[in-house]
Simulated assay, not measured.
Amino acid sequence: MEIFRTSVTLLSICLFHISSTLSETQSICKGNLPPVKHVAVDSNVTVPCPVLSATEMDFKLFKGSDQVTSIYIKINDTSINKNNNSPNFPADLNVNHLDNSSSFILFGVTTNFTGLYTCEAEIIYPPPFKKVPHTPQTIVFVEERQVKISDLCQHGSHLILWIVFGAMAIYGVVMTSIVFILRIKCSQIITPFKDRECRRKWQGVQHPTWQGFHKDTVV
Rank of each mutant, 00 (worst) to 15 (best):
F4I: 11
V8A: 06
T9V: 12
L11V: 08
S12R: 11
I18C: 07
S19K: 06
S19T: 12
T21L: 05
I28W: 09
V41T: 10
D42N: 15
P50S: 10
S53W: 00
S53L: 04
S53D: 00
F59Y: 13
F62I: 01
F62A: 02
G64H: 03
Q67Y: 06
I71R: 02
Y72V: 01
I75R: 13
N83P: 02
N83V: 10
S86D: 01
P87M: 05
D92N: 04
L93W: 05
L93A: 04
N96A: 08
H97E: 13
D99G: 05
S101P: 06
S101G: 07
I105P: 01
T110E: 09
T110W: 00
T114M: 01
E120S: 13
Y125G: 01
P126E: 10
P136N: 07
V142G: 00
K148M: 13
I149L: 15
L152I: 14
Q154P: 05
H158R: 04
L159A: 06
G166N: 06
A167D: 08
A169K: 09
A169V: 12
T176H: 11
I184D: 09
Q188Y: 07
I190D: 14
K194P: 01
D195P: 00
C198A: 15
C198Q: 15
R199T: 12
K201F: 15
Q211E: 15
K215L: 12
